[in-house]
């Protein structure tokens, strides 16, 4: 039965470790209905034999939630960065080409290290500081219409697709990318978070900050959560313009 049933043709860009050269390996995986890229990779894990019938090693990838909310399984599938869990085999053209995100250092095979994004979130202080020695009580309320668009920004899962597609995020550019910038807009919109607005704006006015954006607007095209990243960037451009005028002329 397994021998003559339908196969899924995968061409995977692999890499043994962080320092070795990438290579391509092809696999033919038995088809079942409703498969996604993760379940296809699990088939390779079960039976690590490549398309030439030679014994290989299981392809390594990273995934957690399997429902497109954690961002861990981002990879380049048929040329576009997206999550493996929500990439359904039935909707993909074969052979399916799978490669790791090129913007991040590869750990092994399809597993990359997205640490630079988390470092950027720390740099821009993408949180609301409330810790202290006594209870601060309830903060100010957020207007409902602000909450509605802010909720869209809060869907960011640090998956890295926007950095992958951005032509200004690369080895010779310090640009932090769209995702952490959009989080600045989110936390500056929060009534309690707004109390630390200036610190976040100062952070994105530093090296690799907001002005390194070149307006290619690829980010908003590839974002799997449909976050209005270019609106966030434009809005922050306005915030930093006003902030720098206040810095220079005085803020009263």
């Amino acid at each position: 039965m397994a021998g003559d049933s339908k196969k899924i043709h995968l061409i995977i860009t692999r890499q043994k470790d962080a320092n070795s050269q990438p290579y391509q390996e092809e696999f033919l995986v038995p088809y079942r209905s409703n498969m996604n890229i993760i379940s296809a990779l699990m088939e390779i894990q079960k039976n690590p034999v490549n398309a030439q019938g030679k014994e290989s090693t299981p392809v390594i990838w990273e995934s957690v939630c399997l429902e497109e909310v954690c961002g861990a399984c981002s990879m380049v599938i048929n040329g576009k960065p997206r999550q493996a869990c929500s990439s359904l085999i039935d909707q993909l053209q074969q052979p399916i080409k799978i490669a790791p995100l090129s913007t991040f250092p590869v750990v092994r095979d399809l597993m990359v290290d997205r640490q630079r994004m988390f470092d950027s979130l720390k740099k821009v202080k993408a949180w609301v500081p409330i810790d202290g020695t006594y209870d601060l009580g309830a903060g100010p309320r957020m207007p409902e219409n602000t909450r509605q668009w802010a909720y869209e920004l809060s869907k960011c899962m640090t998956c890295g697709c926007c950095l992958e597609a951005c032509p200004n995020v690369n080895d010779h550019s310090p640009f932090m990318g769209p995702a952490p910038l959009s989080q600045v807009r989110l936390f500056n919109a929060h009534p309690t978070g707004a109390m630390h607005k200036d610190e976040r704006l100062d952070a994105i006015m530093g090296e690799g900050g907001i002005t390194t954006c070149g307006n290619s607007q690829n980010c908003v095209e590839v974002c799997p959560k449909g976050i209005p990243l270019t609106t966030s960037i434009a809005h922050l451009n306005r915030q930093v313009t006003l902030h720098s005028f206040k810095n220079f002329f005085g803020n009263f």
């Binding site: 609106t231 960037i233 434009a234 451009n237 930093v240």
Partner: peptide, 9 residues
């Protein structure tokens, strides 16, 4: 965009 004049799509 860079100067924050056109924000909305």
């Amino acid at each position: 965009i860079t100067w924050g004049i056109t924000v909305s799509p």
